[in-house]
Amino acid sequence: MQAFRYRQPKSVDAALENSGRFLAGGTTLIDLMKLNVETPQQIVDINLLPLDRIEATADGSLKVGALVRNSDLANHSEIKAQYAVLSLALLSGASPQLRNMATTAGNLLQRTRCYYFRDTNYPCNKRQPGTGCAAIDGLNRIHAILGTSDQCVATHPSDMAVAMMALEAVVHTRGAKGERTIALEDFYLVPGQTPHRENVLEPGELITHVTLPKLAEGTKSYYLKLRDRAQYEFALSSAAIVVEAKGGHIKRVRVALGGVGTKPWRSHEAERVLTGKDATPENFHAAAEAALQGAKPLRDNAFKVELAKRALVRAMTVATQAA
């Protein structure tokens, strides 16, 4: 880790006046600084900003501050009651110690666990554009099968963001050009030819909060995460389901997949197959096939295609049983 300057502003305005990397929970940034993957000249510690509240808004949505800790969000009564998928996703991620530190905005921005991104001795287009990708011909069991390019196959590691994708969350920011409101689905970028650009944030732009839209009465949700061990491991495959069903009939459904995409993966393909259909195993399987239609497995991760399908089918089964 190299030496850096440290600022600790007390207001959003003051934070925006400082250039540098924003530090919230530090669970990604500090880790990467120790590896010399991140080498900021200046750290802007935003932990004193008043962005740590969960509040109901007039339109019925829920406003989640950027600095709300993952553990607080997961255990919030309103989240557990109305947005179960989010609570389940958060509690499936990391460890209690990490969840106590990690924040809502930080989780949205966490970096990939690709082995090669995290080691400066390897080429990596995400870390150092134009140097190449060590993962495509390397050991790639944990890598992505959806949204990949010939430049990058790194998996987005978040569970929380997958649930928020299915909840159609909205990201609110402030930056040099003022305030912005960005649908989470429009927030992330696939790698394409520019894998170093992971989202639409401008330099110096700060996430202030996330809003979770109010769900229709009777909506049920579920998050299922599959991995080698039972805790403290990134998803090999996960599925977030938010479904409005009545009498075994699916009125509206949103499906997102984790552990398989270069970004939290919303599957409109699966949603199209399921909308207006009955909640049957056949339809779930058809939706799973549609969701993984475009999957491009690598040498070591072909099993993820099948595993993602199974996650989707099981998560749909559980979510609609509960409905």
Partner: peptide, 29 residues
């Protein structure tokens, strides 16, 4: 079920050289 040190055949680096990627039993297991 979990433990395996994996060497990159290109340079001999154990790529899972940390406690997130080298999987051992957790209490939940």
């Amino acid at each position: 079920m979990f433990e395996e040190t994996i060497y990159d055949p290109r340079n001999g680096k154990p790529i899972n050289n940390n406690f997130a990627d080298y999987i051992v039993s957790t209490n939940a297991d």
